[in-house]
């Protein structure tokens, strides 16, 4: 199977801070990859490099074999940032029309996608309401809608579960699994270990910029009563020595 994401010995430093250190990772097309780690582990930095916001100091990042700095490569990515406060003076339809325009979609296809997506993310009754009046959870759903608008092959989600109520989490889980069934690749960072264990095909764990664990959720289940939370604690609790991936 082709690699949707290929991260090859990537290093990134901001001044004295080593944000990402020699990370190598491949995400196969059609799989759901959870990207876990404590705050400041380097998850968002890695995601930003995947999106071409900045280049790595060393190593190489590829999205479907292309450099994400190129706009063409990014046309295959749908990205949902962590807690973005979208334009307060727009309603959801207008927001999707704006992002659709940025993706270069025609007015007709934007309209069709908008009508399809708004109920899909559970905002059927709020499509014409100004985003200023949206709750945090609703903004997250709007974020998912804008990420899916141009029907991307790869979804990169940064902390997508933040602010979602239990019902919305279940809906989100169903949505992610449905997208995987459609052949989409999903790469998401999260602190929600139980959700990640339920959704993900594979999980990668970062600690202080280094990849310390990479495995499939099937491996976890078969590993003598282990679960993701225990692995996470074992790896990341203070004083725990770093384990090679």
């Amino acid at each position: 199977m082709d690699a949707a994401i290929s991260i090859d010995q990537v290093t990134k430093r901001f001044g004295a801070v080593q944000a990402v250190s020699d990370v190598s990772l491949t995400v196969r097309s059609g799989e759901i990859m959870g990207f876990l780690g404590t705050n400041g582990a380097g998850k968002t930095t890695t995601i930003k490099m995947l999106l071409g916001f900045f280049a790595p100091d060393a190593g190489r990042v590829r999205i479907f074999g292309a450099d994400p700095v190129n706009a063409a490569a990014r046309s295959r990515i749908g990205f949902m940032p962590e807690t973005a406060y979208y334009y307060r003076y727009l309603n959801l339809r207008e927001l999707l029309r704006f992002y659709g325009g940025l993706c270069g979609l025609s007015a007709a296809s934007i309209r069709a996608r908008t009508e399809q997506l708004i109920p899909q993310v559970g905002l059927a009754d709020a499509g014409d309401r100004l985003l200023a009046h949206y709750s945090k959870g609703m903004l997250q759903r709007a974020g998912i809608a804008q990420a899916l608008l141009h029907d991307p092959d790869l979804l990169i989600l940064d902390e997508p579960l933040t602010g979602l109520d239990p019902l919305a989490r279940i809906q989100f889980r169903d949505l992610i699994l449905a997208l995987r069934d459609q052949g989409k690749t999903i790469f998401f960072s999260s602190h929600e270990l139980s959700e990640a264990e339920l959704i993900c095909d594979r999980v990668a764990i970062l600690k202080q910029g280094r990849l310390v664990w990479l495995g499939s959720c099937g491996d976890i289940a078969g590993d003598g009563g282990q679960n993701l939370e225990r692995i996470f604690l074992n790896l990341l609790a203070p004083g725990t020595p770093e384990a090679p991936p």
């Binding site: 930003k48 999106l51 990014r74 749908g78 406060y85 992002y99 141009h150």
Partner: peptide, 14 residues
């Protein structure tokens, strides 16, 4: 400030 720059830059726009 509102972090909307990220979805903007993630779109296929230079």
């Amino acid at each position: 400030e509102h972090r909307t720059i990220y979805p903007l830059l993630a779109k296929p726009v230079s």
